[in-house]
Design a protein around this nucleic acid. Sequence first.
DNA 1: CCATTAAATGGCC
DNA 2: GGCCATTTAATGG
Length: 199
Amino acid sequence: MLIDKNLLSRYGATTDFYKPKSIIFEEGDTPKYYYQIISGDIKLNHIDENAREVIISLLKTGDSICEFLLLLDTKYPVNAVVITESTIIKITKADFAKMLNSHPEIVLDVCKFISQRLHHNIIKTKNITSPFAQVRIKSMLNFFKDLNGNDKTDYSFAVPLTRQQLASITGLRIETVIRCIKKLDADKFLEIRQRKIYI
DNA sequence: CCATTAAATGGCC
DNA sequence: GGCCATTTAATGG
């Protein structure tokens, strides 16, 4: 957890339960709360001009959601959409500021979290600009394993993404992802077992 | 069992 | 590589 639940509670936090596909906030909304995921998975996305989904980032238990905007005076540039049933705790922007004021040690944690996101974004941008679909997919898979997998052994990490999600993340079409992953399977870069991807 | 959703295929540009 | 149509799982009520 980025910030201790009990501490958030002391600053008047409320907890909400979300069903899959529900929306926490939308593009253009004004940030009013600090959100933190108690459990569940959510995604930050954008629907492009062709009505196609672009996944900007995936967030999981313990992560906060677009916290960096609370220090700015801007609107949300993305939608936050629930993927799996989620429990999310939130406190108002004002209470968040109060909390940071009285808890300098939290400021550092938040800074660190934002720095990690920044770091990830640079890696992602670097990867996604490759002219080769295979490179985009491979590096995205490696990225996920580094981020979520404890075991570094080959084929030990079950990629928690559908082909479609992988396509929306890499900016490719689902058919391309399917075909590329099969090739990577043949090349022993990964293994497909019961349609699941292991890397 | 049926409906829904995801994955896989093949043809074509 | 993308687009489209179609088929083939897998999932859940």
